[in-house]
Structure formats: structure tokens, C-alpha cells
């Protein structure tokens, strides 16, 4: 049995705002019968067409899909369209006191429906998620054929939730959850997205104090290198830093892996590129 919070249960058993708004200003529909869940969201704006005065939903799906839809409608009422667009899937999950990771895709579905509704109302291109209903208007390249999900959509969810394994991406978006054929592509996307993020955050500085250098090394290991190892079931632990000498120990699949020598070289290269040229990496038992 899923470990649902009391709030999820409560919103499932007594969902708020079920139904439809006949003269809705915006309607967003995502998902399908074949996918196993779907959400149709209705939004009504005030006279100035600024603020959301009412929201209703219809959902086909499991307990957490219904609870997430209920939460979403409660959260957006009273907000302006721009404010509503700021809501992330994580905030929907937090509103419910959290969702099991395998069910995070339910919160993503809520956020998607909202985006689609607002984009359609504003006459913008419908954002690229995939999903049967919006197939024609979709942008980006399809990555997961089973659920029709695009690279643009996956990138956004990976970056927004800092996902670092293909399994997490499946839990959050369903991508890769059926035939599994796109899992290598998902792994590549993760490496790409997390790599870009770290590059933005860690520009190689000119001159470093020892303390700053140690912090940077830790940062790059955490944000850049370990996520890439996780994607292949591996991991490493930082053992010590002495000036430019960095000692690491491999864990999980990396421990005892025949290519761990190459992996150590890769770590050294990355640290030189992003922190300082004089860094050497040494693998130790630990």
C-alpha cells in the first residue's frame, strides 16, 4: 500500500472543485485513457482577465492524481495568471505534504494542465510536453515514444526537480516506464542538463584561496560528477583534499569496476576544467 499523507487521502476522498466551468476562460487537457491518467482543468478569470476567480477539474487516474488535481485548483484560485504559472510541480506535492516518488508524475500532470490552459488562453504555442491531446501543437523531439514525451519537457522536469537518475525521471514523468527503450536517451539528457547547470553555477575563477578551492571541488563533485556516475549505478566519496591533491574512493557499481581508472581520469579532467589546472586525482581505499 502506498504511504500517502493524510492530506493526500483527504483530498482524494473529498476532492475540491470537481466539475466543469461552462464559460471557462481557459481549459487545459493532458493525458489520455491509454496513459492511465488524464486531467482536464477549467479556469475562470475576473472581469479584468487578470486574476483566477474559479477553477474546476475532471481527472481520470489514481488517488494521488485526483488529490494533486484538487490541490492545484485550490492553489491557483485568487492568483494572477503570471503568479499561477510560477507554481512548480514540487509545490503541488508539498501542498499535499509530499507524494511517494513513484507518484510525482501526478503533480507534474497538474502543472502541465495549467500551462496548457494558460498558453491556449493567451494564444501562445502550447508548451511541449507530449501527451495525446496536444500532439499537433507540440514542439521538440519525442524522446519517450510510449508516452509521447519530448526532450524539452523532460529537460524542464530534470532541471526543475534536480533529477539525477533515469528511474527518477520515470517516476516524475513516466518517460521510460513502459518499453524502456528511451532510457539511454534519458540518461544522456540528465548528463546534459546537469552539466549545463553546473557550468552556469561554477565559472572557473582566476585565483583561489585554499578554502574556496576546496569548496569548489566539493561543489563540482556533488553537482557535476556524482550525478553522472549515479546514472550508471555508480558513486564516489571524497576522502581528502590536500592542496591540489584530491583523494576519492569509488562506491556502488564504480567500486571494483574495471574502468575505474578511466573514471578517475575523467574526474581529474573535470576538476581541472572547472576548478584549477594543478589538480590531481588519486583513487584510495576507503
Amino acid at each position: 500500500m502506498w504511504d500517502y499523507t493524510d492530506k493526500v487521502k483527504e483530498h482524494f476522498l473529498n476532492p475540491r472543485n470537481v466539475g466543469e466551468i461552462k464559460d471557462a476562460d481557459a481549459v487545459g487537457e493532458v493525458g489520455s485513457l491509454a496513459c492511465g491518467d488524464a486531467l482536464k482543468l477549467f479556469v475562470k478569470l475576473d472581469d479584468g482577465k487578470e486574476r483566477i476567480v474559479d477553477a474546476k477539474f475532471q481527472t481520470f487516474g489514481c488517488g494521488s492524481a485526483i488529490a494533486s488535481s484538487s490541490a492545484l485548483t485550490e492553489m491557483i484560485k485568487g492568483k494572477t495568471l503570471d503568479e499561477a504559472l510560477q507554481i512548480t510541480n514540487k509545490e503541488i506535492a508539498d501542498f499535499l505534504g509530499g507524494l511517494p516518488e513513484e507518484k510525482m508524475h501526478c503533480s507534474v500532470m497538474g502543472q502541465e494542465a495549467l500551462e496548457v490552459a494558460i498558453a491556449k488562453y493567451r494564444g501562445h504555442a502550447v508548451p511541449a510536453h507530449g501527451h495525446d491531446h496536444e500532439h499537433e501543437a507540440m514542439e521538440g523531439e519525442i524522446v519517450c515514444k510510449c508516452f509521447g514525451l519530448t526532450d524539452q519537457f523532460l529537460r524542464k522536469v530534470i532541471a526543475g526537480n534536480r533529477l539525477h537518475t533515469a528511474e527518477q525521471v520515470t517516476h516524475f514523468t513516466k518517460a521510460g516506464g513502459a518499453c524502456g527503450g528511451c532510457i539511454p536517451k534519458i540518461k544522456a539528457l540528465i548528463a546534459e542538463v546537469l552539466g549545463e547547470k553546473t557550468k552556469e553555477e561554477t565559472k572557473k575563477p582566476e585565483k583561489l584561496t585554499n578554502l574556496r578551492k576546496m569548496q569548489l571541488i566539493q561543489d563540482v563533485l556533488e553537482k557535476e560528477i556524482r550525478p553522472q556516475l549515479w546514472a550508471d549505478g555508480g558513486d564516489l566519496e571524497l576522502i581528502d583534499i590536500d592542496g591540489g591533491k584530491v583523494q576519492i574512493a569509488f562506491r556502488k557499481a564504480c567500486a571494483g569496476c574495471v574502468s575505474s581508472g578511466y573514471t578517475a581520469k575523467f574526474v581529474e579532467q573535470k576538476l581541472r576544467e572547472l576548478v584549477a589546472d594543478d589538480i590531481t586525482v588519486e583513487e584510495v581505499e576507503g
Binding site: 487521502k9 482524494f12 476522498l13 491518467d37 481520470f60 487516474g61 489514481c62 488517488g63 492524481a65
Partner: peptide, 14 residues
């Protein structure tokens, strides 16, 4: 048709 199994089970469980 048109409903999802987990939601049925949770309501049955109630």
C-alpha cells in the same frame, strides 16, 4: 471502463 483501479481500491478500502 473510464476509471482507474487504484482509485477504486482506495474507495473500497474506505
Amino acid at each position: 471502463e473510464f476509471v482507474e483501479g487504484e482509485a477504486i481500491l482506495l474507495l473500497l478500502s474506505e
